[in-house]
């Protein structure tokens, strides 16, 4: 961010061509990334007939809230929302707690058995037992079809643990520990009262990483859960959008088949927007934390 490569005073001719070219290329990237999102939002507010007729290009055509009304009247959407909020809040709390608890001792250079314990962690990044042994373990622990199945397995992401550990190692000066010890401060108190207040940035980063992970998670739910009342939103979305059970959603609201076909199309767009709205709404404000996480993680991956 700090660099000033360009010498605007006198760019040579090839450099001018170059500048124009990269501006065009990056502009194409912007369009390609943003257009599908804009289109989905516009379509979700449009009249279903117009979507079918291909009249929606950039802005909503004959705006209507019909799609949203039907989607928000559908109880499963609310069940899913509630569950997703639950998994995200509690899952993230567990994640952050466990991650800090692992990262701090392992950041201490004076911990004698640090190396073998770190090996224990990093080996799991290299080798994974696979889906079935994991499934059998969850089954044998009687976690299948309980909410714990989405909270406990995956309580620590080793990658995030390394990010936090790296941050501790480079941002908590040894002198601080020395002087705290002289004052008789225990390791627990040092972590709680001195390390954590100094580590807001990295805690924010991993909190966001974990939270997004929970909000977007669907496969573990498909694997471990069978009771509809415990499904997170993504599973309902998958069933409705990808497994084509969209008719459940439109069932009550229209009488004849053809009208329903039109409405279904609209409902898909509205549903996509409803499900991604929370994340995309806060995205501009939290984006810098994610980027920070990549930078910290890159130091020692």
């Amino acid at each position: 961010m700090r660099k000033k490569n360009g010498h605007p005073v006198s760019d040579s001719f090839p450099d001018k061509v170059f500048n124009v070219t990269i501006t065009i290329i990056t502009f194409i990237f912007i369009i390609l990334c943003a257009y599908p999102l804009i289109y989905v939002v516009s379509a979700s507010f449009s009249d279903p007939m117009d979507i079918f007729a291909g009249k929606v290009w950039l802005l909503p055509s004959s705006p209507t809230l019909k799609g949203y009304k039907t989607v928000l009247d559908y109880p499963d959407v609310w069940i899913g929302y509630g569950n997703s909020v639950f998994y995200t809040v509690f899952g993230t709390l567990i994640n952050v707690f466990m991650t800090v608890l692992a990262a701090y001792p392992l950041s201490r250079k004076d911990l004698k058995y640090r190396k073998p314990i770190i090996m224990l962690f990093t080996f799991t990044m290299l080798f994974n037992a696979g889906m079935i042994p994991n499934y059998l373990l969850v089954r044998d622990l009687h976690l299948l079809n309980t909410r714990w199945a989405l909270l406990i397995p995956g309580a620590i992401s080793v990658y995030n643990m390394i990010i936090v550990r790296t941050f501790f190692m480079s941002n908590i000066p040894d002198e601080l520990l020395e002087s705290a010890r002289l004052d008789g401060c225990s390791d627990f108190r040092f972590l709680l009262n001195i390390v954590l207040p100094l580590s807001g940035a990295v805690i924010a980063v991993i909190t966001l990483y974990y939270a997004v992970g929970h909000w977007n998670q669907y496969f573990n739910a498909v694997l471990y859960l069978t009771d509809k009342n415990t499904y997170p939103l993504q599973v309902f979305l998958r069933n409705i959008l990808l497994e084509n059970s969209i008719n459940d959603l439109s069932a009550g609201s229209v009488a004849n088949e053809s009208e329903r076909t039109y409405l279904n199309e609209l409902l898909k767009y509205s549903l996509i927007v409803v499900a991604s709205a929370p994340l995309l709404a806060v995205y501009p404000f939290i984006q810098k934390y994610f980027v920070k996480g990549v930078m910290i993680g890159a130091v020692k991956g």
């Binding site: 990237f29 999102l37 979305l237 898909k268 994340l279 995205y283 501009p284």
Partner: peptide
């Protein structure tokens, strides 16, 4: 800002958008 955004869309939503 704009090119990072799609990263945060869930797999299910991404596939649904693609299908649409």
């Amino acid at each position: 800002m704009i090119t990072y955004a799609p990263h945060f869309i869930s797999v299910v939503i991404m596939v649904a958008i693609m299908n649409q």
